[in-house]
Every structure is written in C-alpha cells, then in structure tokens.
Design a protein around this nucleic acid. Structure first.
Lengths: 126, 126
DNA sequence: TCTCCTTGATTACAATAGTAGTCAATGTGA
DNA sequence: TCACATTGACTACTATTGTAATCAAGGAGA
C-alpha cells in the first residue's frame, strides 16, 4: 500500500529531482547540485528541504552529527500524481485531448517520433 | 502582439472554462454553471471572478446596471502556457519523455489510439 | 579547553490561493 | 414611495509558497 503523495511545489520539485537523481545527499550536496541551475541562497534550499521532510517527501538519516537526505516518495508516483492533477485541471480529466494537444505542440525529431510510434503500437496490441 | 497570460490558479480554471465554453455571462450564470460541479458558495465564485478580472484574464461589460463577464485571454494560449510550465516543472522541459509517459499511462480506446496515430502520421510528414 | 564555524531549527514576511462574510448601492415590486 | 432583494465592492482569515535571516548546539582547530 503506497503512501499518499504529498503535494510538491514548483521549487520543491528541483530539490526532489536532485535527490532522485543522486540519492542520499547532505543539504550541502543539494545546494551544490542546484547551484548554477537556480539562483537561490543556500538557506532557501535548506528551507525547501525542511519543508519536504515535514511533508514526508524526503527522509533524513543521521550520519554522525550531520544529516543526510533522500527521497521518501517514488519519482514516477510523483510524476503520475502531478500529471493527473494537471490533466484534471487543464483538460478536465480528458486524457486524449491532452495527449493530442501535447503531441501537436511537441517538436520531435524523427527518432522521437518513432519512439512514440512504438509506444503507440504497444498500446494497440496491449 | 499577444498579451502575457496571467497565471491562473486551480480554482480559477473552473471559472475560465465556463467562460470559454459559454461566452459572456453574468456572475450568476457562472455560479449556476458551476453548481453541481463544485461545492463553492456563490460568494466564493464571485471572488474568483473578481480576481480574474484584476489579473486581466476576464473582462467586464456593463449591461444596464449588471455586469457581464467574458474571457479576455485565449483558451489555447492558456492551455499552452500551463502545459509548458507543467513540462518544465515535472520533466525539466523534456517534451518527449513527457509525451511518452502520458501515452503509456493513458487509457485509450482503439478509436482514440487511431486519432493519436493520425496526429503522429501528420507530424512525420510535416 | 575555549572560541569559531558549520549546520539544523526557528522565525519572518510578503504574495497568492482557497474560502467566504459584510457593506453599500441600486433597481423593483407592493 | 419605500422596504426589500440582488449584486458588486471591500474585508477577512488561513494555508502555502517563495525567499531568506537569525539563533543555537555541537564538532574542530588553536
């Protein structure tokens, strides 16, 4: 039974992505990983981490006298939850129009088109 | 030169969708249209409308001594803006993985799959 | 051992969002 | 004409988010 996915705010996503990608990190590792990508002060990033901990999206392990953070929620579950909230909000839950709009807008290379084709073929069969 | 799309909050989307779908309405028309769909008090809906007016997403026409509201921003522009913000946040801007995930998750009928196929074919040619 | 630096905890503060109540103006029916 | 009802304007209040400063505890170097 999976735990409920807490709502992750825009800025918090950046932090989660670092944790998903690099696994357990100290707060400073996260700051380093994000430096360049964002213009936040280290303190700000610490705050985001704390909030994520409070929400249950990130878990803490004490390591000596320092903490180490790692994602407590599954990345694809979060993506799925965010996606369905988006489709609900913008397309009133209608997946197909959403997909169609996405596809029409997307600027895809021929290879990417083929990838999508494969998934589509899979769906047809499955 | 298109006007910038104001950020439309979750609840406000419901209001915008009514205005896009039914054109100019009085506040009460919107309330009626939404009743059943949401559990908000009429006052709440009025507030949402006012906020949208202030943001410039909705425009007002005086009609006698009553107001009539209509969308001031284009629906597809809003959808586009919301979509790219979503893809940026969740997929770090990578459209193709977003599409792939969407497609894999979607529960599509054979007809819908064919529709998507057509769009895909179009893309390949175009 | 004692001071300093690092780092987590606490606090801050404005903007936006969700949800709604009160007030005031203005037609309207009796 | 006058109380009433309708409706927009203003006000309210909490939670969340973005962005960060200050405080305090506990190693670490002098």
């Amino acid at each position: 039974m999976r735990k409920a996915i807490p709502k992750i705010a825009e800025s918090e996503w950046r932090v989660m992505q670092v944790l998903w990608e690099h696994g357990p990190q100290t707060a400073n590792d996260v700051v380093t990983a994000l430096s360049g990508a964002v213009k936040w002060k280290p303190r700000t990033i610490k705050t985001l981490i704390s909030r994520l901990v409070k929400k249950g999206a990130v878990k803490v392990t004490e390591e000596g006298y320092r903490y180490r953070y790692s994602a407590a929620v599954d990345e694809s579950a979060c993506i799925g939850s965010e996606t369905s909230s988006f489709v609900r909000r913008v397309y009133q839950g209608a997946m197909k129009p959403a997909l169609a709009a996405f596809l029409e807008d997307a600027d895809l290379s021929p290879e990417e088109i083929d990838d999508i084709q494969q998934i589509l073929d899979q769906k047809r069969k499955g």
